[in-house]
Design a protein around this nucleic acid. Structure first.
Lengths: 149, 149
DNA sequence: ATTGCTGCAAAACGTTTGCACCTAT
DNA sequence: ATAGGTGCAAACGTTTTGCAGCAAT
C-alpha cells in the first residue's frame, strides 16, 4: 500500500492536534506526496480534479497547511510571490538556486550550510523550526539557459 | 540634500537602461529609502498618499521593481506570500530569522554564510546575483514572545 | 449530540494591465 | 515628434471566508 508510513504520521499528527481524520485529507496527502517537483495549491487541485477527485479547492488549501505543520511537505517561495510546496517524504533537506533568466530551479545540498540554521537560532535565543536558503543567479553558459521565463 | 548619492545611482541606472527620468520615480525612491524596516508596495503607497503625494499605485509598484534592479532596495519574502522591500542604502548585507509564534523578524549577519552563495553559484555553473536566507524559529523564552501574529 | 469538516460560491487580497492622456527625450 | 511613463479603474490569479449541510467523534 502506498505512503503507508506517511499515512501513519499524518494520522498521529491529526489526533495530537485534535483534528478530525477524514478521507479527503488523506486524498490530498496522497496526491501531494505523488506530485513530482514543486507545485502550487491550485496545481494540485487541478491534478486532483482531472483524476476525478471530488475534493474541493478549500479543502486542498487547508490540508496542505496541515501537511506543512506535520512536516510531510515543505512550503517554498522562489522570489515570485507564489506559494509552492514539495514533498519531504524520503527526501534529504536541500536548498535551491533559481536562474533569474530562465527560471530554472536547481536543488543542492551543501554540508557547510547544514548546522547553520540551528546554530544561528541558538545564538539569537530561538529554537529552530526550519529554514529557506535561495540563491538567485544566472546561467554562466547562455546556451544552457533558455530565457523562457 | 537627502539621498544625494542614491539619486545619482538611480539616475545613472535609468540612463543605462534607457528608462526615462521622471519626478515620480524619485519621489518613490525617496519614500522607499526613508521607510524604516520592511514594507509592502501598498504600505508605501499609503504612506505616500498620506503625505499628499499624487503618485499612483501603478507607478509605486513599477518603480519599486526598478529600485530592486539597481540594488538600492531588496525584495524579501518571509514565508507568508507577501512581497516586502527594504532599503539597502548604507546597510550591510544581512539575513533574517522569523519567529513563527509572534512574527517578529530578527536581522543577523553571519560570517560563515558570506561567501557561500557565490561559491555555490560557481560550483553549479551560475553567476551569483543575490540570495535569501530565512531561519524560521520560535522564541526560546516565551515571555519575549507575544504570540500576537 | 456535538463540533468540526466539507463544498460551493463569493469575497478578499495584493498585484498587474489597458487605455487615454501627458511628458521627457 | 515620438516613445515611454503616468493615473485611473478594471481585471487578474491566488487564497480565504461564510454558510448550510454533512460526517467524525
Amino acid at each position: 500500500m502506498k505512503h503507508e508510513k506517511a499515512k501513519e504520521l499524518f494520522t498521529e499528527f491529526l489526533k495530537n492536534e485534535k483534528n478530525r481524520i477524514t478521507p479527503e485529507r488523506f486524498e490530498v496527502m496522497e496526491s501531494a506526496l505523488d506530485y513530482e517537483g514543486h507545485f502550487g495549491a491550485d496545481d494540485l487541485y487541478i491534478v486532483m480534479k482531472n483524476l476525478k477527485s471530488t475534493v474541493s479547492r478549500a479543502t486542498v488549501y487547508k490540508t496542505l497547511e496541515l501537511l506543512v505543520k506535520c512536516e510531510l511537505i515543505s512550503k517554498r517561495n522562489f522570489g515570485d510571490n507564489l506559494t509552492r510546496y514539495e514533498s519531504n517524504f524520503k527526501r534529504q533537506i536541500h536548498d535551491h538556486l533559481i536562474c533569474m533568466d530562465c527560471g530554472r530551479i536547481v536543488e543542492f545540498v551543501n554540508p557547510r550550510l547544514s548546522k547553520l540554521p540551528e546554530q544561528i537560532s541558538n545564538e539569537l535565543g530561538f529554537v529552530i523550526s526550519s529554514h529557506s536558503f535561495n540563491v538567485f543567479a544566472r546561467c554562466r553558459d547562455p546556451k544552457n539557459c533558455k530565457y523562457n521565463k
